[in-house]
Design a protein around this nucleic acid. Structure first.
Lengths: 210, 210
DNA sequence: AGTAAAATTAAACAACCGTTTAAATTAAAC
DNA sequence: GTTTAATTTAAACGGTTGTTTAATTTTACT
């Protein structure tokens, strides 16, 4: 059972534990000893395998973002109406983030400040690719006369992701406000109502003529 | 020069330094010694005045949110068209957060996880008040026949704030993408283009009939 | 089996953490 | 001016931090 991953099983085990803890308590709030205990390894193993705590974080980002080669780029080629492509893109976005809560939370938290100087090129490439795909879809819709022409495309993504993230970051508040007593109800609300809200919003923005 | 603030000058000085540092490096990433050095006081003063580091954070939240009694509640009473009220509300939101970046960043970061059990009642009251004002405005628009009737009002705020926050959290990325080489250009872009984008989005969502 | 490399361990390292102490200084009260 | 309280200080506390060391065990290869 060979693997072309640059990490062996033990390393992956450490990375997975680190992902959970970093997402839960933040990078500074998580100690190597806590990671070691949780992963049932010796403290020295982190330094042995990754060099340092910061490099562990770097490796984690690398490990979890390299698979994020998006379906989004293929989307523009599919045989769908532009607005259907947009809807599907929103679904993919939300599903993707929902399945990778941990790493997205870490990225969101640890890199909004510019203090840490970790290589984010892979992430930037990802975003650039996504943006290009979005531009292609929107231009198609504009050429078909369905979408307005005065759209600032780079601000579409903040609205899609921002709405979702803000909902997620204030989970407790919205669970209470919308009376979603269980996590199942909460997740279900995201999959149906929140997704639909975002799709409606973007559709209205793209089509509505003032 | 008397003040009805429960904090004296020295305490306020400490709170201000703490706000900057917590916002910059996070709560766990900031040590009491760093705060003390920056504020030019002895380390023991934090314990002396606030009891503990956690209680310092609590005091900070209290200190900075108590003034956030919103103009928003008065907005619904003003003599404006519903859509103009919405636009103004968005402007107020963005301006308010822009002027209080530090504390909003701290709130966003330290309380998205539910680990810290600090009293957020004041904050919840604020949000509830804002939501009520928003509901009033939207119902007015609906009664006038301008807004659609099938709007999920609690999801409007996530779209407004989420779009703004997401833009802000990825400052470096968007500065590069939109070629906003200076902070002045960046802030100007928020005040004009981003605000307008959010206003357009919400307007389209409220008015567009599919 | 014997050897070299890799993996794992317990222990130690110095630096830093939040907090407390007890003494020194300043301010307020009488 | 003396007494009392409030403020400020340096030092120490025990504990934790990330990292390194050197010894030991496991694995791989001949």
């Amino acid at each position: 059972m060979s693997s072309n991953s640059p990490f062996n099983e033990k390393q992956i085990q450490i990375l997975q534990v680190a992902e959970t803890l970093f997402a839960e308590k933040g990078f500074d709030g998580t100690s190597i000893r806590t990671i070691a205990k949780e992963a049932k390894i010796n403290v020295a193993m982190v330094s042995y395998y990754f060099g340092s705590k910061e490099r562990l974080l770097e490796s984690l980002i690398h490990f979890r973002t390299k698979d994020l080669k998006f379906q989004i780029e293929n989307l523009s080629a599919e045989n769908l109406e532009p607005i259907e492509k947009i809807n599907k893109l929103i679904e993919i976005y939300i599903h993707r983030i929902n399945c990778n809560k941990g790493i997205y939370r870490i990225l969101h938290f640890e890199f909004s400040n510019e203090k840490r100087d970790i290589d984010l090129q892979a992430l930037n490439d990802l975003r650039t690719g996504n943006l290009k795909a979005l531009i292609t879809i929107i231009e198609e819709g504009q050429n078909k006369g369905v979408f307005r022409k005065d759209i600032i495309v780079p601000l579409i993504t903040p609205t899609i992701l921002g709405t979702f993230f803000h909902f997620h970051m204030n989970k407790a508040y919205f669970k209470n406000l919308l009376q979603l007593s269980t996590d199942e109800l909460y997740n279900n609300y995201i999959k149906t109502n929140l997704t639909k809200h975002i799709q409606q919003t973007i559709k209205a923005l793209l089509i509505y003529e003032s």
